[in-house]
Design a protein around this nucleic acid. Structure first.
Lengths: 211, 211
DNA sequence: GCGTGTGAACCTCTTCACAGCG
DNA sequence: CGCTGTGAAGAGGTTCACACGC
């Protein structure tokens, strides 16, 4: 496949298309149109076709896209045909909550292990997995080769967790911490910011009140 | 204040500025420059000044912005001076995890209540709050007037939860469900999609491998 | 006829660079 | 002199509308 530079927004939409396609597949649908994908994802059909056409011509004029083929193509583009392992760092409320909720229906991701620095927690179980000491992170990263780490530690410990993960060779991190983290350029860090989402919601709510 | 139409990206950055300002205030700083805000948020100083200048002239040439004043102004812009109540619908792993992790350090938000449809769960406690039946949602929304609801129910029940919330008069929703939800135009729905974030991370990780 | 793929127009956001003020 | 606020230029993403193939 040729390396195509593409915006994060487009990749994010690709992820949505993949999800819709998995659902369509479960419903037994064989063909899907850009219009159907668009409606489900809440965007325009032109945007769908534009996104898909960046990577190739997957559709057939007059009919649409074959669900199975398109899904496989998108997974190949995203690199999720064989998804990397996911580990959780921090066995507090959020970490354990994520572990217990699992990742079913997400196209093959799985929480492989959960770690904590507190000796009172390590050894106890969470969702059938032993909570392991953070000292064991390096060996797991080495064993699994490619790992995405979810940082779910308490405020103030985020940077330490990240440094430890980077040292262990992890290059993809999803953080639930409030504080912005510093990472080397070759390490991708993304954030899930509940409080920012709440701010955006509050803003739009309060703005609408003047109408 | 005059109604200014502004992009969601800008509002999201405003939320980040507010967070930086709260941290600076705790550290006892009185004045802050656009450059300092920019570095902390990982963007350019010009972007910061542009964002702020949309709403007014908050700074002083030659020195910078007064931390306290700017924070109050941004909170007023976001509408978060007196933040709305937040409730959680769904007392599964994620719902309870969120409840237990709380919202401290987010500028005044608070989880006011948690609801579930399962009679086996209602009545039991979570983080010092009784899990209440979803039948009680309408009265709570009415009592609090303005409420943001976090949907943390299991896959397949999201739409039902949303409908119930909308009927109760809730107009701002943050959903952790995988499935896209349908809501009336006057209701703002946002999503937290862990699996999409994982897809984006996988994509960039696998792309870098060819270098 | 139907739905894809795509040039071209359009629009929005970002970056640059500098005037202006404390 | 330092830093803000902002016109102007630039980059990037979205929408339109239509030619083409089934």
């Amino acid at each position: 496949m040729i390396a195509v530079k593409v915006s994060e927004k487009s990749i994010r939409r690709m992820s949505h298309y993949a999800r819709c396609l998995r659902m369509a597949k479960i419903r037994g649908e064989v063909i899907i149109t850009s219009q159907q994908l668009a409606t489900t994802c809440g965007i325009s059909s032109a945007a769908v076709r534009r996104d898909l056409s960046i990577y190739g011509e997957f559709g057939k004029q007059g009919s649409g896209y074959k669900v199975d083929d398109l899904l496989m193509n998108i997974q190949s583009i995203l690199g999720t045909t064989d998804p990397p392992s996911v580990i959780i760092v921090g066995a507090g409320s959020i970490g354990r909550g994520l572990m217990n909720s699992g990742l079913s229906g997400t196209g093959g991701y799985r929480y492989e292990a959960i770690f904590d620095s507190d000796p009172a927690k390590t050894g106890t179980s969470c969702c059938g997995k032993k909570i392991r000491s953070i000292d064991e992170i390096p060996e797991l990263v080495k064993e699994k080769k490619e790992v995405i780490a979810v940082i779910a530690v308490s405020t103030g410990s985020g940077q330490r967790a990240l440094d430890m993960l980077v040292d262990a060779g992890c290059s993809a991190i999803l953080s639930f911490t409030l504080e912005p983290l510093n990472a080397p350029a070759n390490v991708e860090v993304r954030y899930i910011e509940v409080s920012t989402e709440l701010d955006v919601l509050t803003h739009s709510m309060r703005r609408k009140e003047r109408a």
